[in-house]
Amino acid sequence: MSIKKLICIGCPLGCEMEAEQEGTEIISVKGNTCPRGDAYARKELTSPTRIVTSTIRVEGGARHMVPVKTRQDIPKGKIFDCMEEVRKLSVTAPVHVGDVIVKDIAGTGVALVATGNVNVSN
């Protein structure tokens, strides 16, 4: 059995937590102030994930770039695969918050969506 120390990234509080781990099983989580901390610790120690945010080029827009994110968190190990695909992408204006850019980014099953608005250049 081992004890792992973690800092929760669920919100800006940044709770310092201790998790008891037996093999792949998490026995207990201490130090969290809310259920999100417990869930984060269990996931972080078994299959860590992150939301990835970046930008892609916009053709014919009032701005050059539009921000994007993975709609849900993706496995940590897939972050750079995701970025590689993101770098090759571009969209044509207009783009709106929530527009799906790619349905399944880097084989994660998670969509890449726009998080900003770019109007057509006038």
Binding site: C11, I51, T53, S54, T55, P67, T115
Partner: peptide, 17 residues
């Protein structure tokens, strides 16, 4: 453009934009 905004205001995690 990163996430982590709005947990208090909107009860969900948003990006800045």
């Amino acid at each position: 453009i990163h996430n982590g905004f709005g947990l208090h205001t909107f009860k969900e995690e948003l990006t800045g934009p």
